[in-house]
Structures are given as C-alpha cells and as structure tokens.
Design a protein around this nucleic acid. Structure first.
Lengths: 155, 155
DNA sequence: AGATATTATTTAATATGTTAAATAATACCC
DNA sequence: GGGTATTATTTAACATATTAAATAATATCT
C-alpha cells in the first residue's frame, strides 16, 4: 500500500473533505492567539509573571475574592493548572488563600497589595496593546470579532 | 495601603484603562479556541494522538515532505515542541525523518502509511466538525472570522 | 445516625509551551 | 584556508495543558 504523492487519481478519490490547513478554524485561532499574546508576554516578562498569572490577577482585581472554580472559569484555566499556579502565586505573595469556614472544601482566593501593584504597573501598556489591535482591525471589525468569538464560546 | 473594594473614589481615579476581562481579545481567543478544539480532541483520543500531532500529520499529508522549520511554521508549533513531538511520532511510526545529504543541519520529515491511515480514519468526522462550526456561524460570519484571524496573524 | 452520593480541590502522569543556551554544520570573509 | 558569523536543530529548565484518579468535606437518603 505504497501511495506516492503523484498518484493523482487516488488523491482525488477521497479528498475534498477537510478544509486546507490554511482555512482551518482551530489553526487560525491558534495563530491569531499567538500574535495577540506576543506583546503581552513580552510586557509581563519584566514583571516576572506569565500570561496565566496575569489573567488571574486581572480577574481578582476586577471582581474581588473568588473561589477556585469560578476563578478557573473566568481566567480560562483548568482546575489542575489553577491549583498549581495559585500555589506558586501565594508563595510569591501575589494572592492569598483561605479555606471557607462554612464549607471547608472551598478555598477563597484574593489578590494582595503586591498583586495589585503588578496590575497597576502594567495597566497602561496593556491598555495600549489592546487599543493597538482595535485600531488595527478598525472598531467595526474588532467588535464583530469579539461578538463572533463569544458566540463560539457559548456552545 | 489597604484598599477596600468599596473605595470607589480611588477606583475611579485610575481605572477605565484596561478592557474588562469579558472584552479581552486574548481571553476571547483562548475561550473560542478551547471550544473549537474540544470535539476534535475527543475525536483524536480514539486514535491515540494529540491535536498537535494531528496538525503535523495534516500538514505533511497535504504538502508532502517538509523540513522542520517550515513544518513548525505550518503546524503552528515552536521548534522545541516540534523536536520532541516528531521524535515521539517517529517512534510510533507515524512519520520518518531523514538528514538532508546536501546540508546535514537539515532534517526532512515525511508522513508514513500508518500516519496517512490516521488521517483517513478521521477525515470525515473532522470535516463534519468543521462544517458544523461553519453552519453555526453562517457562511458569511464564518468567512469574516477567518479573514479577520488571518489579518491578526499577518502582523 | 450511617451508608452512599455529590462537590471542590488536589495529585499523578504524560504532553506541550516558552525562553535561553548549547550543538553542529555550513557560509562568509580577509 | 582558518577564524568567525550564520543557520538549523536540539537540550535544558521551568510553566502550563490535559485526562484520569484520589482526597476530603458536605449533602442526601433511608
């Protein structure tokens, strides 16, 4: 069953199903995400945190103390990842954890002053980066993109 | 410097810069990517390969033998990841590697018959999944999304 | 109350992501 | 031609992703 790439007849027989990788939604999403993340990662490197840690800080900064499960949902992380990341962030003093007394299965996580400082140090540049993408696509297309992505998320 | 969340005045003073995490492009991209990947990952689990390995197989199936650098570009992987993944795929007999004799720095990777079999086994279902998202968004919005994502990639 | 089910989180194991440094082969330059 | 820069790939070290199983506390049911 040696199938040379010059065997056109065979190729034709059962192709035309998958979209070319160029037009693959997963790949397109992966590439776009990569490009958007790049400047953010560079910015955060100076503060010694990762993009995941940045998301956690942002969510807590914005919404206040949260339990792990909703925090995972908001920060777009799986629980096993969150467990470890929060552990290391607590070590570094960026967040605190507390077992809820009314249900000792639950942990409440909060941002510390040190964590807030990191947000505030990077806030303007992060906003500038976000703005740059908005300008680049145009307000209209940028809005459409956010709406479409949210639509995909709601499946 | 204890800053309670009820300190509205302070909040107002220096907020209004970062978009709410709801409207963050990186987060929206991450979530959408996750939702799109989910059914693909489930499908591939049955064949015992990951989504990255699937991308590598698809690129090679579509384009024939490639060197590592363009393969990384096409499959949307960083070189260190690709190195390891190709090693394990070669072990499993899904791809072969050959050092180019005219430049022994370069490796050429090719898909094997076994690798092709995996593509062919999953081809229809993968196409159906892709079609599902296209129908879900509508042809128009789906096209716009692909165009916008490609635009982001070209930075 | 005691057995069982459910829920929240953690561990474990393996795979990949990310950055920096190391290797190794080729190209370049005087 | 030998020293140096470049290029392609690999290693190393650490962080995260993914799935499955384990823990541990609470809820439920009889």
């Amino acid at each position: 069953m040696n199938r040379s790439s010059s065997d056109k007849a065979f190729q034709k027989m059962r192709v035309a199903k998958l979209p070319a990788t160029d037009r693959s939604l997963p790949i397109a999403l992966t590439r776009a995400r990569e490009k958007v993340m790049l400047p953010i990662r560079q910015m955060l490197a100076a503060s010694g945190i990762t993009e995941q840690q940045w998301r956690i800080l942002r969510v807590l900064y914005e919404q206040g103390p949260l339990e792990l499960t909703p925090l995972a949902e908001q920060a777009c992380l799986l629980m096993p990842s969150l467990t470890r990341i929060v552990q290391s962030m607590a070590q570094k003093g960026l967040v605190t954890r507390a077992t809820r007394e009314d249900d000792r299965r639950r942990q409440t996580v909060d941002i510390t002053t040190e964590g807030r400082t990191i947000i505030e140090e990077n806030q303007e540049e992060a906003a500038a980066i976000a703005k740059r993408f908005e300008l680049l696509l145009g307000k209209q297309q940028f809005e459409t993109l956010l709406v479409t992505l949210k639509q995909l998320d709601k499946l």
